[in-house]
């Protein structure tokens, strides 16, 4: 997802360090926030953890909103005709890496669910049970799928300085 602004059609210029920090915050804060918010049984003494989890999820969405208008997200999401050959080559490399990571995550998730079924009577492994769990997983997958190619672009070699 790339949010184009009229003032900056090439996306908001952002240093790779800032973009990397925002991507790292997004990928750490969202799952941790979901675990804190949904993971433990929310009895009265755990209300604070739930609020902290919610704040972490909100912070991760803020990072996502900032990244959505960045030049990295533009390069990852623009139609081919709007990119030059160097941008396309970098984008193709990043998309391939993102696909490999996503495929690996899906394979690991399937392996986990398979093992959970095998050991269900001996080790009680966690599995999503209610709508809130599936909602968190769904939005996590959407965020990862939309941002991972741009994250790999942010970890490419530093772009040259402007004139």
């Amino acid at each position: 997802m790339y949010v184009r602004s009229r003032r900056r059609p090439m996306g908001a210029a952002m240093s790779p360090m800032l973009a990397r920090s925002l991507f790292a915050a997004l990928y750490v804060l969202y799952p941790l926030g979901c675990i804190l918010q949904l993971g433990p049984d929310t009895s009265d003494d755990l209300q604070l953890l739930s609020v902290i989890g919610l704040l972490m999820v909100a912070a991760s969405f803020l990072a996502f909103a900032v990244l959505a208008g960045s030049s990295f997200q533009r390069q990852a999401q623009e139609p081919d005709a709007k990119l030059d050959e160097r941008e396309l080559a970098q984008r193709n490399r990043a998309a391939y890496r993102a696909f490999a990571v996503l495929a690996g995550i899906v394979a690991l998730a399937l392996l986990y669910m398979d093992l959970r079924m095998d050991f269900a009577d001996r080790i009680p492994l966690w599995a999503p049970t209610d709508q809130a769990h599936w909602n968190a997983l769904f939005w996590g997958a959407i965020i990862l799928g939309l941002t991972l190619p741009a994250a790999f672009l942010a970890w490419e070699k530093e772009p040259p300085l402007e004139d």
Binding site: M10, D84, E87, K157
Partner: peptide
């Protein structure tokens, strides 16, 4: 092309 592409070319990257 994007001005950054010229920079990448100059740098030999």
């Amino acid at each position: 092309v994007n001005p950054q592409t010229v920079g990448y070319l100059e740098r030999g990257d």
